[in-house]
Design a protein around this nucleic acid. Structure first.
Lengths: 111, 111
DNA sequence: AGACGACATAACATGATAGTTATGTCGTTG
DNA sequence: CAACGACATAACTATCATGTTATGTCGTCT
C-alpha cells in the first residue's frame, strides 16, 4: 500500500487524508525531529540515521507515550506517504519523504 | 476572539489547529467555492459576493447538510482564522482570509 | 532450537467530530 | 409591535482519534 503512497504526485494526493495525518502535535513533532535524526536521537549501532532515519523505539521514547501509541503515530505518517519505513536487522527506521512533503506544501499553497 | 485570529502571522499560527480545520472535505470544498463566490452561488440582493463573500444559507445549501452542521463548519473556519465573516442586514457573508491562507501555506512549506 | 528484543495487533476507555432535530435569539420588515 | 427570516445554540447520536494494557509475531543471536 505504501508503495503507491511513495509516488505521491499533486494529482494523486489525498489532501484531506494528508492534512489529517499532519494535524497532530505529536506527528508534527516527529517530522521535525526527523529533519535531523543524528541530532535528536541517540547513536544507533546499525543503520545510518541520516540515511535510513531514526529507530522506532527512539521516536516512541522521545514522544513520551506508550509503544503502541507511538507506533501508531508512525503508521499514520507512513500510510499518508509522508514518512518512509525501512526494516533492517530487526529494527525499523523512519525517515521523511521529502518529495511527498513538498507535494503537500505545493498543494496546500493552492488551497 | 476572531480579531486575534485575523492577524495570523507565521509565529502566532496554531499549526495543528489550522490543519485540523483544513482536514475536512466539506471545509476544503467551502474554501474552494469561496475562491469565486459569484460563479458558485446564486446572485445576492445585498452584499457584493466578491467583496463580502457568500451568504451562509447558500453555502449550507450547497454543502447538502443541515443548517446547523453547515454553520458549524463555517464557524470552524472562522475560528481558525481562515475565513472572515461579515454580518450585514440580517445575513452573514463569508469570504476567504487570503493573508491567513498564505501564512498557512508558508508554514506548511517548512514542515 | 530457544530466548529475547522489536514491533504489531487486540481489546478497551475516553474524548473529540460531525451529523441530526428542536428550539432560541435577534435584527428586519410589513 | 408583531411576524418572519437568518443564524446560533442545545441536546442527542454515531463514528473516529488517541491513549492505555495485554498479548502476538517474527527475526536475531546464543
Amino acid at each position: 500500500m505504501s508503495l503507491a503512497e511513495l509516488t505521491i504526485t499533486d494529482e494523486t494526493l489525498d489532501l484531506e487524508g494528508v492534512l489529517k495525518a499532519l494535524a497532530s502535535t505529536r506527528r508534527l513533532q516527529i517530522l521535525e525531529w526527523l529533519k535531523d535524526p543524528t541530532h535528536h536521537f541517540p547513536p544507533q549501532e546499525h543503520g545510518d540515521p541520516d540515511e535510513h532515519g531514526a529507530c522506532n523505539l527512539f521516536i516512541v521514547d522521545k514522544l513520551g507515550v506508550s509503544q503502541p501509541a507511538g507506533s501508531r503515530h508512525l503508521k499514520v505518517l507512513v500510510d499518508a506517504g509522508l514518512v518512509i519505513a525501512t526494516k533492517r536487522k530487526g529494527w525499523t527506521y523512519y525517515r521523511r519523504n521529502e518529495a511527498a512533503l513538498m507535494s503537500v506544501a505545493a498543494r496546500v499553497s493552492s488551497i
